[in-house]
Design a binder for these strands. Structure first.
Lengths: 242, 242
DNA sequence: GCAAAAGTGTTACTGATACACCCATGG
DNA sequence: CCATGGGTGTATCAGTAACACTTTTGC
């Protein structure tokens, strides 16, 4: 631990979302402490001279090996008593050079495509796992607050900028996957025909030659998301009068 | 200056919006430095043991004498070089005990009703003024970035929760004021009849007995905003599929 | 041939837009 | 009596919502 690199007052915590074709999950790290499992969001202190966004990217990269992920700050958490559980205090004392320092943490949301990456064994994570966002799980520190706020902010963000949802899907995906994702985010179910109708009039969804294989039903067509077309066509400037 | 009260690593900066029946303004403070006027957002270091939201409320209260204003954090600004202008560095040196410390600042948006309050002479403001948000004005530090981001975030927020816009209007207001406010936020102009039609089917707008007086045209009816009715009726859960 | 998900159109309804004139007041 | 902004209705258009059956594949 080379604490002299770090600014002991500021940290980042990442809420990393993934979609497994059924539901939305977040990435948690697990550590053993006094024989019990303790779960937490991945995060780290910000280094001296390091930008906040850079610190969050660094945490993501160390954990997933991926770069250029969707990443957005959503809130700063600075309550003076955000670390109050004795178990957490004990943990902090074991890893920080200045455990008594008040730390402000900046919450970041990130979206990853679940297919095709492996967790990287990391300095700060004994074990890494996907956990369903809808399933309650006690987390360390104020991480429940951070995760809940992040999930709320992500949904708000997607309302305004639905494009980012494609960061959760593989490069090629079926309309059923897209609809399931949408339903998982929104929390309601949609009519299949109306959904397809609305989707297919968007030029940014381009049908690929390829179809599903190995499924015991009519194989679905794959689509991909064309970001350039989206940006051209989709000048969302909708305003809602109460 | 009793710096020992303060946490020298964290500050808050407030983007305070007001509506003057024509346009949206933000509150700036002005100081004289080397014979030049320097403009900045109001802000302060966070005190030791003080919550971030509390620090922002404190800045607002010292400036306006008002409490329980609409207040929302919108972003943390933590670039290592956010203070780089020599004029700003000189200023920091003159007021901070640890001028070399890196400071993370948390940006807050606030909405005030312009009618019926006076600026309070404050420890940190030689002069306080309303400045049109649309009119460019160079600000100290990274305050242009903070103000622009705050304005953008406010507009995004109002799209999702238009209710908060009423924090900018007086208790009683005319539909014309409401429409002008809406147009100032959205940046487009609306058809008067359609606007009134949509507004008047909302139960949360309640017509008062009172009408305008002293105007040289047909006096307009006053309305007020009923927050309880709004919360009951207006379960906004609109989702937009691309 | 059966189970399982893909794919496909029409109708009814609801909300948005476009548009022009009379009314009440102060000076 | 004139200038000013307040206040009102209708017709058209576009988008949303509801709804059931046929197709293709693996086993």
């Amino acid at each position: 631990m080379e604490d002299f690199h770090y600014n002991p007052h500021i940290s980042v915590d990442c809420v990393i979302f993934g979609f497994d074709d059924q539901k939305i999950n977040i990435l948690l790290i697990k550590r053993k402490q006094s024989g019990k499992n303790v779960f937490a969001l991945p995060g780290d202190l910000v280094q001296k001279g390091e930008d906040l966004d850079h610190a969050a990217s660094r945490v993501l990269f160390e954990l997933t090996g991926l770069q250029n992920l969707y990443l957005e700050q959503f809130k700063a958490f600075g309550s003076p008593d955000r670390i109050k559980d004795p178990v957490d205090i004990e943990w902090i004392k074991s890893i920080r050079e200045h455990p008594e320092e008040r730390v402000i943490t900046i919450g970041y949301n990130s979206l990853v495509k679940v297919d095709g990456f492996e967790f990287t064994p990391s300095s700060f994570a004994e074990e890494v796992l996907w956990h369903p966002i809808e399933k309650p799980q006690k987390l360390a520190f104020d991480h429940n607050d951070i995760a809940n706020t992040g999930w709320f902010m992500l949904r708000e963000k997607i309302k305004r900028e639905p494009m980012i949802a494609f960061s959760l899907l593989p490069e090629k995906f079926t309309l059923r996957q897209l609809q399931t994702l949408y339903e998982a985010i929104v929390g309601i179910s949609l009519d299949k025909r109306n959904f397809r109708k609305r989707m297919l009039r968007n030029n940014f969804l381009v049908a690929m030659e390829e179809r599903e294989t190995g499924v015991s039903h009519k194989p679905a067509q794959y689509f991909r998301f064309d970001e350039d077309t989206y940006r051209e066509d989709f000048a969302r400037d909708q305003w809602f009068l109460f």
